[in-house]
Design a protein around this nucleic acid. Structure first.
Ligand SMILES: Nc1ncnc2c1ncn2[C@@H]1O[C@H](COP(=O)(O)OP(=O)(O)OP(=O)(O)O)[C@@H](O)[C@H]1O
Length: 716
DNA sequence: TCGGTCAGTGTTTTT
DNA sequence: CACTGACCGA
């Protein structure tokens, strides 16, 4: 053990070995905060503190998993018992034990974003709201803001002229009715429980002697309250963070919490870490120079002993389809020089920017793993199957009404088509509300729906009952598959030839089977309970390039990092700047700081030029590129010749780059095209050489130069 | 009342 | 293109 502490530098040691005070570590990127945290936990266990009396709160499930794995190598079996989780998982843990104290069943439902949206759909109908004037995501954001700030629907009424406050009221009422919680509720209800119920609070306080919080700069006031409620007066808190890495203020994070920490905890030792062990001096200097453009920050003099004469490489791609090619070339090159794919990451501001990269990496057979975006358990067919399974769960004795079934019923009642349409569902809902039943109960015994319509319910109800009766004899994974077939869902997929969806359902079966292997007594109820929390399966990444947003890359490190899409308006995001002005820009800059400091040895920054028909002006490089002093930067300009770019069917060569493009076949309205970044699309309008192309979700209609090589005509 | 067509719309970041 | 709401024929 002592070796773990020995591997720390002096201030890290001080922080790790201060066990009789609260500790706050404020330090820049890569200065070994997380490493210190781990050493501290290891040393606590070594000093006889019982592992389960130690809590560590991480920001993501991935970070929790990683910390657990690394502790395993330090502590072997004892590591298993250290409580390591995100604050949301911790709250679920607390609530599943004692939710009854605040009027919830222990197996309350957790809603994910999809469920929230489908609730809004019903509410929109009721309030006659339309989704263009009130984008659901914006309304959900508003509701979340009100909830978290502690405004009741009545109080929210004063803050808007629109119907949003009313929507908020209905939303809350429906949640209450279903005994369900959204992600905000997990925190709010936990705070409420701990704050009002001394028994529960004492129980948890007496369980925990040492509480650690990683990424403390992104904690919000509600989370902070929970942390304080968990801390017994003689327990110790150890928080770690970097104010320059605050990137979640848009969802309530408050840097002031870490800055003013010592005010709330006077017995605090503050430790500053100045040496960066991750990045080369060049990368670090560049990142420091960038973040220095922000105002009102605490200056840090972060240094690195990793000398390197390797500069940061920037390049301007000819257009958005060239950028991924150049990235791929640099990845291939690095690989030839001995780097593994797993040592490389491609980072971007928003998820949609991954598409072009994916396309090219896939084509060139460079293995990659994408993090974020639409995750496994969020896929439509997976959620559909999970909804079918939900229908055959038994109600919690504390929630006999089981109204949370309604979400599942609404989702699959007419998928595949059973002739039960919107009108009928509306009637069913009304009847359910009037009779105080859930939708499944109404389906069994409808009283307000005409006989003809009601006849269509029987097969559905029979399916549910049939599956219910099989629960005792058929293993869960097989039960799910039977459900998929007997419901007609699989046949529907076959009909529409959606093979990848079929495959995903088979993967779901494998996932359930694996869960059963880990816990043979697993019940269906348990399996479904916390899935919304774990939106991704933990599968081996293998040796693959990592693709993710900068937000998702927080806390990680890679030998080589590519930051792509560094265009003004993209990164920094125009929306962020419009919404929050200078604060927005500064948060974007912190985001860029986080991105750059993920790199150990090599950093590539790229943007794509060309004309943006959207903005009606030429694209420009991100100001962040210009904020990096030239000394640290090398402009890359190696042409792409000799790189295995796929040849276009027309035999166009890359030599035409920059030249007036040779006229290809003229595109006409209705033509089907394929774009290297946006994928398949249809021409909707032609103005001289500018075509409007409608691409698939979420790209929408884009105006493009019809002769551009990234656009190819394909057969309809 | 269902479900087929038609026209209009459509980008942050995540637990 | 994918998704939604409006409209209309069965
Ligand atoms: N004292 C040390 N000696 C050598 N290497 C160290 C030391 N402390 C940390 N490191 C290494 O430096 C890298 C960064 O450490 P760590 O991830 O703990 O930093 P961090 O401060 O948490 O970074 P971030 O703010 O980006 O989350 C890791 O590879 C870690 O192993």
């Amino acid at each position: 053990m002592s070796s773990v502490i020995d591997s720390l530098n002096a201030p890290q040691k001080e922080a790790a070995l201060t066990l009789d005070k609260d500790v706050r570590i404020i330090a820049g990127a890569g200065s070994g905060k997380t490493r210190m945290l781990m050493a501290r936990i290891a040393s606590l266990v070594d000093n006889g503190i019982l592992p389960w009396r130690i809590l560590a709160i991480t920001f993501t499930n991935k970070a929790a998993r990683e910390m657990k794995e690394r502790l395993q190598t330090l502590l072997q079996d004892a590591a298993r018992d250290v409580r390591i989780s995100t604050i949301h998982s911790l709250c679920v843990r607390i609530l599943r034990e004692d939710a009854s104290a605040i009027g919830y069943p222990k197996n309350f439902t957790i809603l994910d974003g999809d469920d929230q949206k489908s609730m809004l759909r019903t509410i929109y109908k009721e309030l006659d709201m339309d989704r263009t004037t009130f984008p659901p995501s914006a309304v959900l954001g508003k509701i979340s803001g009100w909830k978290t700030a502690g405004y009741s629907p009545e109080e929210a009424q004063d803050q808007t002229d629109g119907p949003e406050a009313k929507a908020y009221e209905l939303y809350e009422r429906q949640l209450e009715d279903m005994k369900a919680m959204d992600f905000d509720d997990l925190l709010l209800k936990t705070r409420h429980l701990l704050g009002t119920n001394q028994e529960v609070r004492d129980k948890w306080q007496n369980r925990l002697d040492y509480i650690h919080v990683d990424e403390f700069q992104d904690v919000d006031p509600v989370q902070y309250d929970i942390i304080r409620l968990l801390k017994r007066p003689d327990a110790f808190l150890c928080v770690v963070g970097d104010p320059d890495q605050t990137i979640y203020t848009w969802r309530g994070a408050a840097v002031d919490i870490i800055l003013n920490f010592a005010r709330d905890f006077p017995n605090t030792r503050t430790v500053i870490l100045n040496e960066n062990y991750r990045s080369s001096q060049t990368i670090l200097d560049a990142a420091n120079a960038l973040i220095a453009h922000n105002h009102g920050r605490i200056e840090k003099d972060l240094f690195s002993s990793i000398e390197s004469d390797r500069k940061i490489e920037t390049f301007q791609a000819q257009d958005e389809s060239q950028e991924p090619l150049q990235v791929a070339r640099d990845i291939t090159r690095a690989r030839k020089e001995g780097l593994e794919y797993r040592d490389i990451a491609v980072l971007y501001r928003s998820n949609y920017l991954s598409r072009g990269i994916e396309r090219v990496l896939g084509k060139l057979r460079i293995p990659y793993r994408i993090y974020g975006g639409i995750r496994f358990y969020e896929r439509q067919e997976i959620k559909d199957m999970l909804s079918y399974l939900k229908l055959i769960t038994e109600p919690d004795p504390e929630d006999p009404a089981q109204k949370s079934l309604d979400l599942a019923v609404m989702r699959v009642i007419n998928v595949p088509r059973r002739g039960i349409g919107a009108r009928t569902v509306e009637k069913l809902q009304k009847e359910a509300a009037d009779r105080g039943l859930n939708l499944l109960e109404v389906l069994r015994d409808p009283q307000t729906v005409s006989g003809a319509a009601a006849k269509k319910f029987a097969p559905f109800v029979e399916l549910v009952d049939e599956m219910k009766s099989l629960r005792a004899s058929v293993p869960l994974d097989e039960l799910m598959m039977r459900m998929a077939f007997d419901s007609g869902y699989m046949a529907m997929l076959k009909d529409t030839r959606e093979e990848d969806r079929e495959e995903n359902i088979e993967e779901l079966q494998a996932d359930i089977r694996q869960a059963l292997q880990e816990n043979p007594d697993l019940t269906l109820e348990e399996y479904l309970q916390d899935l919304s929390l774990f939106t991704d399966r933990d599968e081996e990444a293998g040796n693959a390039v990592s693709l993710m947003t900068v937000h998702a890359a927080k806390g990680l490190e890679f030998e080589q990092v590519h930051i792509v899409g560094l265009n003004e308006g993209v990164f920094p995001s125009l929306r962020a700047m419009e919404e929050a002005g200078r604060d927005g820009l500064e948060e974007e800059r912190r985001l860029m700081y986080v991105a750059m400091t993920r790199a150990k040895k090599a950093l590539y920054l790229s943007w794509n030029s060309g004309y943006s028909f959207q903005l009606d002006r030429h694209k420009t490089p991100s100001r962040f590129i210009q904020e990096i002093p030239e000394d640290y930067v090398k402009q890359e300009s190696t042409p792409l010749d000799n790189y295995p770019v796929h040849k276009s069917p027309q035999g166009q060569s890359r030599k035409s780059r920059g030249r007036a493009p040779k006229p290809t076949t003229r595109l006409r309205k209705g033509d089907h095209v394929e774009h290297t970044v946006y994928g398949a699309g249809v021409v909707t309008d032609v103005q001289k050489d500018i075509v409007s192309v409608a691409f698939g979700h979420p790209n929408g209609v884009r105006k493009l130069n019809m002769h551009h090589p990234s656009l190819q005509k394909v057969k309809g």
